[in-house]
Design a binder for these strands. Structure first.
Lengths: 125, 125
DNA sequence: CTAAGACCTGACATTGACGTCAGAGGCAAG
DNA sequence: CTTGCCTCTGACGTCAATGTCAGGTCTTAG
């Protein structure tokens, strides 16, 4: 498949796909005229990459993890495996922070609603 | 207190504090010579702002929420209250995404470790 | 064949929360 | 008074993923 179709299948822009390739996250074969060709399985790969991006990983970090995806058979990926655990922890901490922020917003909403209630009662007297 | 002390108490840079003021998130009184002066309670405010930043809110969004913090007494903050709920939902979705990414990494780690086991068994024969 | 619509490379633009630097003034201790 | 540290404003730099544009090639339907 060509780049436009992969883009729409995976839900990203054509520009992004070229960028992923530039960053070493995605590879393509080229048609005789130089156009990129992809197979079906790249769709999942792109979605996976996107998932990591939205989880806050950088291109470089993703590149360091990819050996675990591409060749789980190699044992060279010791470093990659460590990196994997490390990023998992980072995500964990981020989740904690988000839960904290959510709770702070909840408290704020409660306080505001309580005030609203108070005013409502006040108007009854 | 002066800006440097607030910065160290709240754990942010002086630059950030000036930026927050520029964005309308923080206010200060000025000494006759024009230096910013803060009270103790700004420390908590700055920490709260930081928490929202790390939760992915933008300056503009934070500014829209602040009426709920500053004057929960007003009923004008209807819009702010909606915004609050909206951001809470955004954070919720983000948490979901992060959990998904974490799970994906877990699967990947499992697969890699399984392979390692397999190699270990192989070496026993 | 031809026009429309992908595709190519290369390069500059964008956004947001800061970092950093320059040049000037403020303030307390010796 | 001076030395050293803090503060001021204003402006430019940064980083990373992506948008966008230009100028050219490829492909395919009619």
């Amino acid at each position: 498949m060509r780049i436009g179709e992969l883009a729409s299948q995976a839900g990203v822009s054509v520009r992004s796909l070229r960028y992923y390739e530039e960053q070493g996250l995605l590879s393509s074969t080229r048609s005789p005229s130089g156009q990129r060709r992809y197979t079906e399985k790249e769709i999942e790969r792109v979605r996976f990459i996107q998932r990591l991006y939205t989880a806050g990983l950088s291109s470089r970090t993703i590149a360091e993890l990819l050996p675990c995806v591409d060749s789980p058979s190699e044992l060279n990926d010791d470093e990659a495996l460590q990196r994997l655990a490390q990023e998992r922890e980072r995500i964990n901490r981020h989740i904690e922070e988000l839960c904290g922020a959510r709770e702070a917003l909840d408290l704020l909403m409660d306080a505001n609603r309580a005030h609203r209630e108070q005013l409502a009662f006040g108007s009854l007297t």
